Simulated assay, not measured.
Amino acid sequence: MGTKLNEGRVAIVTGAGQGIGRAHALAFAADGARVVVNDFAADAAGAVVEEIVAAGGSAVVDSADVADWDGAARLVDTAVREFGRLDILVNNAGFVRDRMLVSMSEDEWDAVIRVHLKGHFATLRHAGAYWRAQSKAGDQPQARIVNTSSGAGLYGSVGQGNYASAKAGIAALTVQAAAELGGYGVTVNAIAPAARTQMTMGAGEAMAAQMAAPADGSFDAMDPANVSPLVVWLGSLESGSVTGRVFEVEGGKISVADGWQRSAESDKGSRWEPSELGPVVEEILTKAPVPMPVYGAR
């Protein structure tokens, strides 16, 4: 057993009743943190809390809707009331309503954007206000926010336009929040995990087969627990110099995803004529990096 990096710290994990969120909650508890296990399904959250307590840890249930403004505020209040403080917020809650864009309903769009993107913002905003108040009172936090984006948000995913848009927004929100909250002692990073969850197993036979656990007992690269060590480290005091970054995690592989940045360019020094731009665009695209392919594109 390695050194516990989060001994005595207090963490909120949203969407922690199952899958990746459950793995995060268990990992933080094993690392010495006290955990608020948030899930809209209170029974599922309760089962995770029982598992943590049975292992000698400390945890409480919260069943707030993270995308409800007052519910997100109560979630932060729960951590402070039950454990006296809040150090770590892990935004993980979400679900999918997959459909091609030309078939997607307004409700399917709104529901996914609400839970993923607003659900990240609402909790982040209330936690950020708590830490800002601490900082202004002279008690500078060493706080951490870990958001959950996705490869779909970084590269696109056919049939998941609502989900991809929400996750892209979360990646941008991470960079924005890192810049705004850094002065209050808060770092903000994101992960884009690949793991076996209820969402991925419901995404079709091909995806389910890819995500299935190996029958031979070899390393299970899609085990959700593989994602949690990086999240636990990002929640710790050790990670204080890392902020505004997005990490992809799959199995034993961790990589940094670089966001939008300028690459090739052409500057005329005056206004372009539309008729001039064909060869100019062709030239700069030839010099620019090739984009990652959209998941599911032919």
Results as ranks from 00 to 15, higher is better:
Gly2Gln: 11
Thr3Lys: 13
Glu7Ala: 13
Glu7Ile: 07
Val10Glu: 01
Ile12Thr: 03
Ala16Pro: 06
Gln18Arg: 13
Gly19Trp: 04
Ala23Trp: 02
Phe28Gly: 00
Ala29Phe: 06
Ala29Val: 07
Asp31Pro: 01
Ala33Asp: 03
Val36Thr: 08
Val37Cys: 04
Asp39Arg: 01
Phe40Trp: 07
Ala41Lys: 08
Asp43Tyr: 09
Ile52Cys: 05
Ile52Phe: 03
Val53Thr: 13
Val53Tyr: 02
Val53Asn: 03
Ala55Ser: 09
Ser58Arg: 12
Asp62Gln: 07
Asp65Pro: 04
Trp69Tyr: 08
Asp70Leu: 14
Asp77Ile: 07
Arg85His: 09
Leu89Glu: 05
Ala93Gln: 05
Ala93Leu: 10
Ala93Phe: 07
Gly94Leu: 08
Val96Ala: 06
Arg97Lys: 10
Arg99His: 09
Leu101Ala: 07
Glu108Ile: 11
Val112Trp: 01
Ile113Ser: 00
Val115Arg: 00
Gly119Phe: 02
His120Leu: 13
Phe121Ala: 05
Thr123Trp: 05
Leu124Ala: 06
Trp131Leu: 11
Ala133Cys: 04
Ser135Tyr: 09
Lys136His: 07
Ala137Arg: 06
Ala137Trp: 12
Asp139Gln: 13
Asp139Leu: 12
Gln140Asp: 12
Pro141Met: 04
Ala143Thr: 08
Val146Asp: 02
Ser149Gly: 14
Ser150Leu: 05
Gly151Phe: 08
Gly151Ala: 07
Gly151Leu: 15
Ala152Leu: 04
Tyr155Gly: 00
Gly156Phe: 04
Val158Ser: 05
Asn162Gly: 09
Asn162Cys: 11
Tyr163Ile: 03
Ser165Phe: 05
Lys167Ala: 05
Ala168Leu: 14
Gly169Thr: 11
Ile170Leu: 04
Ala172Phe: 09
Ala172Ser: 12
Leu173Val: 09
Ala177Phe: 01
Ala179Tyr: 08
Gly182Ala: 09
Gly183Lys: 12
Gly185Ile: 07
Gly185Thr: 02
Thr187Val: 11
Asn189Leu: 13
Pro193Gln: 07
Thr200Asn: 02
Thr200Cys: 06
Thr200Met: 09
Thr200Glu: 03
Glu205Gly: 03
Met207Ala: 08
Ala213Ser: 14
Ala213Ile: 15
Pro214Gly: 06
Asp220Thr: 10
Asp220Ser: 05
Pro224Gln: 08
Asn226Ser: 10
Val231Gln: 00
Val232Lys: 01
Trp233Pro: 00
Trp233Thr: 04
Leu234Gly: 04
Ser236Phe: 11
Ser236Met: 12
Leu237Pro: 03
Ser239Leu: 07
Arg245Asp: 04
Phe247Ser: 02
Glu248Val: 12
Val249Asp: 07
Ser255Tyr: 10
Ser255Gly: 14
Ala257Leu: 15
Asp258Arg: 15
Gly259His: 14
Arg262Glu: 15
Ser263Val: 14
Ala264Met: 10
Ser266Pro: 06
Asp267Ser: 12
Arg271Asp: 14
Glu273Ser: 15
Val281Gly: 03
Ile284Pro: 01
Ile284His: 03
Pro291Arg: 13
Pro291Leu: 13
Gly296Phe: 10
Gly296Asn: 06
Arg298Leu: 14
